[in-house]
Design a protein around this nucleic acid. Structure first.
Lengths: 308, 308
DNA sequence: TAAAATAGTTGACAAAAGCAGATATTAATG
DNA sequence: CATTAATATCTGCTTTTGTCAACTATTTTA
């Protein structure tokens, strides 16, 4: 782990220098097309930007306005873009790609992809994933992007390591948010031990929500004869409030209905008002409560139930 | 997770375009110095390269030889670099920085750092770490660097999530290398449950080896009265053979001696000849063996012991 | 309604980068 | 060993890229 902020900045600086070289190498193919690097960048930005104008390109690409004007002229003469008077502002033009422009861009991307393919040809599947995920991480971090729920995948195929990751997630989140002690991770481990040793794909299920290859949420259903137990309902804080919790809950309850369980019960604590409100919204009813001071002082354990 | 290779390539292409913009922004500060971007890159490369010559710069920076010749002239006239005839090849010059050149480079780095600082000022500690680690990941992956043992940190402060991560690591590695089944992860979880519920920092210890913020190896010592149990001795495959295993083992045994344990025992299986050879090298002796067909067919469980 | 600001264009110019040929030296080949 | 091929660098010339400032047309602000 890179520990102090000075090291981090140095790491970033070194990466920038390194990646300047990488990009220089990869951009060479553009020079072999009839376009210059700037022209290619402008073309891409026009394609990616809705209602694109010169001003927007100047801001996004930090390009000189005079230079851009000539670049746009050239692109128009080549038949790659259209310039249309903006109806809302007669000074400005709306820029858009022609179909020829789209084809050109596709060709550029194709070349680019071939080069990237070559660059990663010596890497393993695993390494390529690490690479792509790291790049997504950087972009998301620097653009302050909140994760979009459609980028989060949910699966229930119980891969090796799923249980361990979710144990770790529980421990970290409950420590950070509720200051639970070390033994809490032990109890979660215990619960997964039981789950894994008795695992029956027909009656038990664990859903893992993943983003950028890392687990960000989960929910589980555990077989108890005619009753099912809902367990491990948890989301990383950044992934709350975007509908993921509801989605996980619905998946779990649908599975319970499919399996023909009579009812679903769950244990939770008074620490989790947000989860509790989701349970009651889904129709769960509190059926018992008792004190539990093991993980933290003053916690009340609650049991909820939902008749199916 | 980015699933297929087409998506990965597209992700990389998008990142490249995105990062071109980032670098363009960050490189602006150089234009405000008396150097051009190329001159600054050349200066850095000379500083970083031992016995640097023009040819090496041409290869590394992909710069035109004629252009480079002039760039070097300018840098020499400014007093930033020295050109000395190479003794081994009278055609070539050895390039090196003058002290003035070093100062200039330090100033450039300072400016660069200030800009980076500004860029990451809106990010949390956590996000900055993700950023820097992702960048290191990219560089290490693309340059095919084997992890250096000195970049791996080993700690034993038992943080929340450590146990879960190590459970996951066990499950993944034993599945990939020995095809152990799902229940194996359950048994590992069970062992950590016991460990965490009885954890006593004076007598129990868990070491986690980390690289780029992720666990890559571990070893543990568990209190059994006058005897200690060695557990969870494991390294990710890429981190084997660089002395890390020995280091972990020594740390664990030193701790056992410090605690005054009489002996150390451990359970392992016939599947792990590499680990077994490390145990015997450390002085462990086999004291029993029995069959165990739970995790995989035909596995023999072995018990080893070391008198301290 | 006049002044200030904005979107974009154009001409003049400077800086950056590339190409081709030249020179000195070294390596390779018969 | 002599000759040829290859290499490292430099120089003159050219093209490409990028910058600056002045200018028009329009919109916003005071």
């Amino acid at each position: 782990m890179i520990d102090n902020s000075k090291n981090k900045i140095a790491t970033i600086r070194q990466f920038n220098r390194y990646y300047t070289n990488v990009l220089g190498l990869l951009d060479k193919h553009i020079l072999e097309s009839e376009l210059s690097l700037s022209e290619a960048r402008v073309l891409h930005e026009i394609a990616a930007t809705d209602g694109c104008t010169s001003k927007m390109l100047i801001d996004m690409l930090c390009i000189d306005s005079g230079y851009l004007s000539r670049v746009l002229d050239r692109l128009e003469k080549c038949g790659f873009i259209n310039k249309a008077k903006s109806p809302s502002d007669k000074r400005a033009h709306l820029l858009s790609l022609t179909s020829k422009g789209f084809n050109k861009m596709a060709a550029l991307n194709g070349h680019s992809d071939k080069q990237i393919q070559e660059m990663i040809s010596g890497l393993s599947e695993e390494e390529t994933s690490v690479l792509a995920n790291s790049m997504l991480n950087i972009r998301n971090t620097l653009t302050h992007q909140r994760p979009r729920p459609e980028d989060v995948t949910i699966r229930h195929d119980l891969r090796p390591g799923d249980a361990g990751c979710i144990i770790a997630m529980h421990a970290r989140i409950y420590r950070a948010e509720y200051d639970y002690c070390t033994s809490f991770e032990g109890y979660v481990a215990q619960s997964f031990c039981e789950f894994l040793l008795n695992y029956n794909p027909e009656r038990d299920r664990l859903w893992v929500a993943e983003h950028l290859g890392a687990p960000v949420g989960c929910i589980g259903v555990v077989n108890h004869g005619s009753r099912a137990q809902l367990r491990w309902f948890l989301l990383s804080s950044e992934y709350r409030g975007i509908g993921l919790g509801k989605k996980l809950m619905n998946m779990a309850l649908d599975f319970c209905r499919q399996c023909g369980y009579d009812s679903v019960f769950l244990d939770t604590t008074s620490d989790l008002p947000l989860a509790i409100s989701m349970y009651t919204k889904a129709g769960f009813v509190k059926i018992s409560e008792k004190d539990n001071n093991v993980w933290r002082e003053g916690v009340t354990e609650l049991e909820f139930e939902l008749k199916l």
